[in-house]
Design a protein around this nucleic acid. Structure first.
Length: 277
DNA sequence: CTTACATCCTGATTGC
DNA sequence: TGCAATCAGGATGTAA
């Protein structure tokens, strides 16, 4: 479920609560995520100090002492929560609390993931860039690398729908289904449009809208559409600011035309048929 | 190379 | 109300 703003919100909270702490003990309750967590994961993490927590695309990149890096992805339903020492056993979810990191201040970091689409691995820091998960990622959408000329070079001649292209992590890293719909609404481009047919002026609008929307969403600590919660259990507040996502049949905030929902590349895609051509 | 689609899994919501 | 079908914010692997 989480896209860049949700992962970034999580990163900021975890950074405050966990950097500088040492992992006293790591426990794997359920290693069967989309790919099985390596058997030596827990032993490798034990005793390590958390030096930094960064983000790349939708991945959290946790730097550990001893030049190790933990890479984690939330998939569709994953979450990390920081639980204080006041929590009792009742807070434990035996079905989906798959990874528990006990810190030296008595608190715990818990990875919960009902659908188990997430990812969890540890590698030597120097091998990070060579990981298949990170190797092919496109530029961060909040960086200057993501500009209209770059996007034009990626859309040229492409027949895929522009929305699919925006969600392709090799093109730009971190945009998912909700924000792709929102970005295209602000750019006034219909999600079904073939990427190669999007004009340069429209690409400029897409590139301008992207950081605006993502930053606003980060400021609201992300979007809670169904069940997303941040590491303190709080829902994100951006849902109330969504212009099109999840608003099928409701009036467009700009022109009052009913918002439509069409399937593009197997994903629900919301747009205003009048504002977006 | 590009594009299309199934697949991993559980839980919440929708529809009858 | 109850139960079955549908859908979910992601990424990858396979096939055409």
């Amino acid at each position: 479920m989480p896209e860049l703003p949700e992962v970034e919100s999580l990163r900021r909270i975890l950074h405050r609560s966990a950097v500088g702490r040492t992992i006293k003990n790591a426990r794997i309750n359920e290693p069967r995520l989309r790919r099985r967590i390596s058997a030596d994961f827990a032993a490798t993490l034990g005793g390590r100090r958390i030096e930094d927590i960064a983000r790349r695309a939708k991945y959290l990149v946790v730097s550990l002492s001893g030049d190790l890096t933990m890479l984690t992805h939330l998939g569709m339903s994953g979450s990390w929560t920081h639980r204080g020492d006041g929590f009792d056993a009742g807070d434990f979810d035996p079905r989906h609390d798959h990874v528990v990191l006990a810190l030296d201040d008595g608190t715990t970091l818990v990875y919960n993931d009902p659908r188990r689409f997430g990812l969890m691995k540890v590698v030597r820091a120097e091998k990070l860039g060579a990981l298949p998960e990170l190797k092919g990622l496109g530029p961060e959408p909040l960086s200057r690398e993501f500009n209209a000329d770059y996007l034009a070079s990626k859309t040229r001649g492409k027949k895929v729908a522009i929305k699919n292209l925006l969600m392709d992590q090799r093109i730009v890293a971190g945009v998912g289904n909700i924000y792709a719909s929102e970005i295209l609404f602000f750019a006034k481009v219909r999600p079904t449009r073939r990427a190669g047919r999007v004009t340069h002026a429209e690409l400029e609008r897409i590139v301008a809208a992207t950081p605006r929307i993502l930053r606003a969403a980060i400021g609201s600590r992300g979007t809670t559409f169904r069940s997303y919660r941040d590491s303190r259990g709080q829902p994100g507040r951006f849902a109330e600011r969504l212009q099109v996502y999840g608003r099928e049949g409701k009036p467009c905030f700009v022109c009052s035309t009913p918002i439509r929902n069409v399937v593009v590349g197997q994903r629900a895609s919301f747009y205003c048929p009048k504002c977006q051509r």
